[in-house]
C-alpha cells in the first residue's frame, strides 16, 4: 500500500470526519528559516543567543525524559508538547548564534565541552518527582515568559522574531505549571508536602537567573537586562504560590555561575548522554 492508496482509502470517509481531523503544518518561524534568512549576528549578540539557546536545550533534554514516564498518559502528551516547544526555541537560538562562528545548531549542541555551555543551573536540576519538575517549570516558564515578552521588542529583528513565536508557547507552559501547582499545592497533604520540598531544593537557583553581565549592558536595546525581570517574576510566582496555599521558601541562594561555564555536577552527565552518539561518529551526517 503506498501513500496514494492510503490517502484514497482515508478520503473515502465523510466530510464531517475530515473537518474534525484536518491538519496543517502552520506557518510559524522555524529554525531552518533562521539559517537561511538570518543576518549574521555580531559576537555579543551571538553570545547572548547562545545563553538563551543553552537554557532551552538543557531544559528540553531534561523534560524529554518524562515522555513514557508521566503520572497519566494525557500528561505524557502535555509534557511532550512542552519539551518540543522548548527544543524548538533552543534550535532557533543556537542556529542564530552559530551564524557568527560558521557553526550549525548541531556543532554547538554536540561538539562543545561542558565549560563552554552557558546554561543556568536551574535548567540542569534533576527532574525529581513530578512536583519537582512542575516547580522547575513554574520558575523557568514565568521567567521565560517575561523575558521573551520583552525580547519580542528587541532592536535585533531575528531575536525579536524568535521571541515573538516563543512567548506564545511559553505562555502555555506557564499556564500548565500554574494549573498543576494549584492542584498539587491544594490537593492532598502529601502533594503539598512534596511541593514545599520541591520549592526548597530549587529556590537556591533563582538568584542566578537575574544576574546581569557586561554583555547585556553592551547589547543595550537588543537584549533584555535579566535584573529588570525580577520584580515582575517575584510578583507573579508569589501570586501562583499563594493561590496554591504555598509560600516562597526561606532558603539561601546558591553560588551559581553557569553563564561563565561553571556548572553543577549534573551537566556532565546530561552532555555525556546527549553527545555520545554524535561524538562516536565525527563528521557523520544523520
Amino acid at each position: 500500500m503506498n501513500h496514494d492508496e492510503l490517502d484514497a482509502t482515508l478520503d473515502s470517509f465523510g466530510d464531517a470526519l475530515a473537518s474534525a481531523t484536518r491538519v496543517t503544518p502552520g506557518n510559524a518561524l522555524r529554525p531552518e528559516d533562521i539559517a537561511v534568512d538570518g543576518v549574521v549576528p555580531d559576537e555579543d549578540l551571538a553570545q547572548y543567543a547562545l545563553r538563551l539557546g543553552d537554557d532551552a536545550l538543557i531544559l528540553a533534554q531534561r523534560l524529554s525524559h518524562w515522555i513514557s514516564r508521566a503520572p497519566e498518559l494525557e500528561e505524557d502528551v502535555a509534557l511532550g508538547n512542552i519539551a518540543l516547544d522548548v527544543l524548538g526555541h533552543a534550535r532557533s537560538f543556537l542556529t542564530y548564534a552559530g551564524l557568527a562562528w560558521d557553526k550549525t545548531e548541531d556543532d554547538l549542541a554536540y561538539w562543545r565541552e561542558e565549560e563552554e555551555f552557558t546554561s543556568l543551573h536551574i535548567v540542569e536540576q534533576p527532574n525529581g518527582d513530578f512536583g519537582v519538575t512542575i516547580t522547575r517549570q513554574l520558575i523557568i516558564s514565568i521567567y521565560q515568559y517575561l523575558l521573551y515578552s520583552k525580547l519580542a521588542a528587541s532592536a535585533d529583528p531575528t531575536l525579536a522574531a524568535i521571541a515573538a513565536k516563543a512567548v506564545k508557547e511559553v505562555d502555555y507552559h506557564r499556564d500548565h505549571a500554574t494549573q498543576w501547582t494549584r492542584r498539587l499545592g491544594l490537593g492532598t497533604e502529601e502533594s503539598a508536602q512534596r511541593m514545599r520540598h520541591a520549592l526548597e531544593i530549587l529556590w537556591p537557583y533563582v538568584d542566578e537567573m537575574f544576574q546581569d553581565e557586561a554583555l547585556h549592558e553592551r547589547l543595550g536595546d537588543r537584549a533584555v537586562l535579566p535584573s529588570s525581570l525580577r520584580e515582575d517574576w517575584e510578583q507573579q510566582i508569589t501570586q501562583v504560590l499563594t493561590d496554591a496555599g504555598l509560600e516562597v521558601p526561606q532558603v539561601g541562594m546558591a553560588m551559581a555561575r553557569g553563564r561563565s561555564g561553571e556548572h553543577s555536577e549534573h551537566l556532565g552527565y546530561i552532555l555525556a548522554e546527549m553527545q555520545v552518539l554524535a561524538r562516536k561518529h565525527p563528521g557523520a551526517s544523520w
Partner: peptide
C-alpha cells in the same frame, strides 16, 4: 465536531488535555 474523548481530573485540565491531545497538528 466530536473528535474523541480523554480523562482529566476536572474541567480546566480537560480543556487543556484536549488541546494537547486533539490539536497537535493545527486541527
Amino acid at each position: 465536531v466530536h473528535a474523541g474523548s480523554l480523562h482529566a481530573p476536572d474541567a480546566e485540565m480537560a480543556v487543556r488535555n484536549a488541546r494537547d491531545l486533539y490539536t497537535r497538528r493545527n486541527e
